[in-house]
Design a protein around this nucleic acid. Sequence first.
DNA 1: CGATGCATTGATATCGGTCAAAGATGGTGG
DNA 2: CCACCATCTTTGACCGATATCAATGCATCG
Lengths: 234, 234
Amino acid sequence: MNVLSSLPAIRALTLSGFEPTRPTLTDQQRAQLAAVSTRLDLKARAIIYRDGDAATSIFINGGGVVIAFKDMPSGKRRVAGFRFAGDIFGLAERGRYINTTRAVTAVTLYQIPIVTLTETLRQDAELEFQFFCKVVHELRQHQRKSIILARRDAAGRVAMFIDFLRRTRAGQGPLEDFVELPMTRSDIADFISVSLESVSRACRRLSDSGMVEFTTGGVRIVDRGRFEKLVART
Amino acid sequence: MNVLSSLPAIRALTLSGFEPTRPTLTDQQRAQLAAVSTRLDLKARAIIYRDGDAATSIFINGGGVVIAFKDMPSGKRRVAGFRFAGDIFGLAERGRYINTTRAVTAVTLYQIPIVTLTETLRQDAELEFQFFCKVVHELRQHQRKSIILARRDAAGRVAMFIDFLRRTRAGQGPLEDFVELPMTRSDIADFISVSLESVSRACRRLSDSGMVEFTTGGVRIVDRGRFEKLVART
DNA sequence: CGATGCATTGATATCGGTCAAAGATGGTGG
DNA sequence: CCACCATCTTTGACCGATATCAATGCATCG
């Protein structure tokens, strides 16, 4: 297993601007990791691990939605992000998890002890490269989050959040006009750093203006033109 | 050149939580890259490349400060970040630069065509790994930026920005109490997404409260205790 | 010594945070 | 199967902080 085998991918990264085509693991690779992992089935609201716990495992989301957050001393909560099917999470700082993660919906997880992961990575440069991609993917997510937070108006932030989820969860094909919102208003609020009341009001305004329609569990973008114009307006 | 040669580093990443100890290149590696690069000496305000240009080179900052920003259709400007000595910049999306970069101070740059870089990386797994570290470093920067932007009060954001620079520019030793601010108020404003007037007022308040002292070209943290308490108050 | 870019300060309006309360929703146990 | 309870969501009123507009001060550099 020569380093050159993984180089074309690295080259693609630098040439095309750090845009790995596979931000999440392929089914094949998930299966490979599943072989050395423990499957967990959790119901909504279950805590996966807590901020500050010793980080002994990483997790792969095999279905459902997970929220990563941190309770701040002030009593506020900072939502770092959401993990969807295929996402890897559980990276740590100084051996400790930096966020608390909780199941938003019922989820299936694959838990892999870090020592096992290390062994597995040692034997598979391609898989190792996936972890690189994972970090690149996280970087892109954070860049987008920064752009959302730069926005001043609550409605704009909510619209950008919807667009963010829309793009994050999109497959290869064209973008869907329906976006699932399994998380609560409060989760959204703490992600985009706006009070939950403002999120609620913003949703109402977006809805009243005829851009989108909120249904139970999601939003449908009705007036795509105006919606995208609002999102782009920075 | 076996993949295993770079694995200890990768392992360190996953185990210790993606915290490479060398977020920027070592002098040795810079020299190595310098051999295949063109040296540029630019004076303050010079444009290095523009948003949308074909991305043919990457740059290493050999001294001075560079700002990366994007002019938005609305006329506003979003400052993505600042690049200091040792930082690599010029990564692109779809073959195009995504930001405009400009020299804030006089700078020395090493320009490396991407094709050359690719060749160099192919021959050096350790250097290749540095690019991984670079991405991790960028990720951390963006995480910090998100935390700054989550802050609501302008004074808090400015304080966190000062702290951000203080930590970014710190060496191995203890944190300095003096932080250089070579960029304009407007640059700071567009980085932390606050109007430049608010930045000015926030600086005044921080100064009036006796936490810091603004001098030409920098800030000195006078009351470290209160300053850090303000920064931590989230 | 103008001119230009940068920084500061002031006045005002707007928008979102906060507090408060009521309305919807969903899950659980009787 | 239904009622109740916890949680989430919506709406309202008010206040404070920041954006915005405007003008002045202040370097630095031709």
